Simulated assay, not measured.
Amino acid sequence: MTPNDIRPFRFEPARADLDDLWGRLDRVRWPDEVPGTGWEHGVPLAHLKDLVRHWRTGYDWDGALAELDAHDQFVTEIDGQGVHFLHVRSGREDALPLLITHGWPSSPVEYLDVIEPLSRDFHLVIPSLPGYGLSGPTRELGWGSTRIAKAWLELMTRLGYERFGVQGGDWGTWISREIGVLAPDRVVGMHGNGIICFPIGAPGELDGLTEVEQERMAFRERYLTDQYAYKLIQSARPQTFAYGMADSPVALLAWFAGVYHEWSDEEVPADRLLTTVMLYWLTNTAGSAARSFVETPDTDQDTSVEWELKPATVPTSISVFPKDVLRPIRRFAERDNAIVGWVEHERGGTFAALEQPEVFAEDVRAFFASLR
């Protein structure tokens, strides 16, 4: 592939790799478990055994691959890195291009259930993050949010989209925000399901917090002492972490299943989870994705990453789902962003397009319609 080339793509894993995977699932070495601990120590043994049994005997990989292949996929090279993306054009001539960026541990599979409703109004561009699944692995360090945002701007230029909207979840909110900071003249608006924002120690910023805001601050403290372990492990020793993820599909599934359980309001469809795990396993990119955590600021606790919180001027709307791992507080979001919309939902979590696809799609459509 030469620079600027965009080629059609279909994922065709080697039969030997699939046979190897099924063989590994047939000879799992299970750990012991202290009875009665539930999810307190991580994914329960019975839960994971059920997932692995379904993976081996009930999950339809060929069907999942066909569902992905039902949408136009492409690959290109940007800044020395292979980039995979879905490009679904709308039937509307005046459709707005919309760039959707997923987070971790995710992939474009997260958005399969919202492609049809969103494509009524948008030309959709849904890339795999550099180093993640079909865009991986990365071969060098430095793929932080700013570099990815620049790559996404180049991608949209190659596709002929001068003006477009951006949407993101999890880390994708930070990348989408950064695109607007770098090129506010090109970005019509930014929608996030959640947004990364936090107190900065300014005088009076915690005065008068509502009960809901106090609960979110309390969750933030629990996140930093408990669930933040996902980031600490991967950002501190990503290479050591990678060996287990590359050698054991069950270890990879357990790691992802724990995140999807803890960061969701309800269990996401098992087949959607397994398809994402398959993409990481067959491309051997769990370790590559882990490296991105070295360069991903998402709290004021991050001292190993040099970054500056630059004000964003692009009109921004946030959909807040109660079990989202981000759980933003509006006063902090408004400090650094041009917040023009804020929708609080009663159900849903981090993977809103999977958990609440109809609500997710309607929020995105309504926000960008308001900007026309």
Score class of each variant (00 low, 15 high):
1 M>N: 07
6 I>Y: 07
7 R>M: 04
8 P>M: 05
13 P>W: 02
13 P>I: 06
15 R>A: 09
17 D>N: 11
21 L>N: 14
21 L>M: 12
22 W>Y: 13
24 R>E: 07
30 W>P: 11
30 W>M: 13
32 D>Q: 11
37 T>K: 08
40 E>V: 12
41 H>A: 13
50 D>S: 12
51 L>F: 01
51 L>W: 01
52 V>S: 00
53 R>W: 12
60 D>I: 07
61 W>G: 04
61 W>H: 13
62 D>T: 05
62 D>N: 05
68 L>N: 11
73 Q>M: 13
83 V>L: 13
89 R>S: 08
91 G>E: 15
94 D>M: 02
95 A>H: 08
95 A>Y: 14
96 L>M: 13
116 E>D: 09
124 L>C: 06
127 P>N: 03
128 S>I: 11
133 G>P: 08
133 G>C: 09
141 L>T: 00
142 G>K: 08
148 I>R: 14
152 W>E: 03
157 T>I: 05
158 R>H: 07
161 Y>D: 10
161 Y>T: 04
169 G>F: 01
170 D>A: 08
172 G>W: 05
174 W>I: 08
175 I>S: 00
176 S>H: 08
181 V>T: 03
181 V>P: 02
191 H>E: 02
191 H>S: 14
194 G>W: 09
197 C>N: 15
197 C>W: 12
203 P>G: 08
205 E>G: 11
211 E>Q: 14
222 R>K: 13
226 D>T: 15
231 K>H: 05
233 I>S: 03
233 I>G: 04
236 A>L: 07
236 A>S: 10
237 R>I: 06
239 Q>F: 05
244 G>L: 12
247 D>Q: 13
249 P>E: 05
249 P>T: 02
251 A>N: 10
251 A>P: 02
255 W>I: 09
257 A>M: 00
260 Y>H: 10
264 S>T: 07
264 S>Y: 03
270 A>N: 08
270 A>K: 14
278 M>V: 09
278 M>A: 06
279 L>M: 15
281 W>F: 08
283 T>K: 12
287 G>L: 03
288 S>E: 03
292 S>G: 13
297 P>D: 11
308 E>R: 15
310 K>V: 15
320 V>F: 14
320 V>S: 05
327 R>G: 00
327 R>I: 05
329 I>R: 02
334 E>H: 02
336 D>M: 11
337 N>V: 02
337 N>H: 14
338 A>W: 10
339 I>P: 07
339 I>F: 00
340 V>Y: 04
346 E>S: 14
348 G>N: 14
353 A>M: 05
355 E>Q: 11
355 E>H: 07
358 E>D: 15
360 F>N: 12
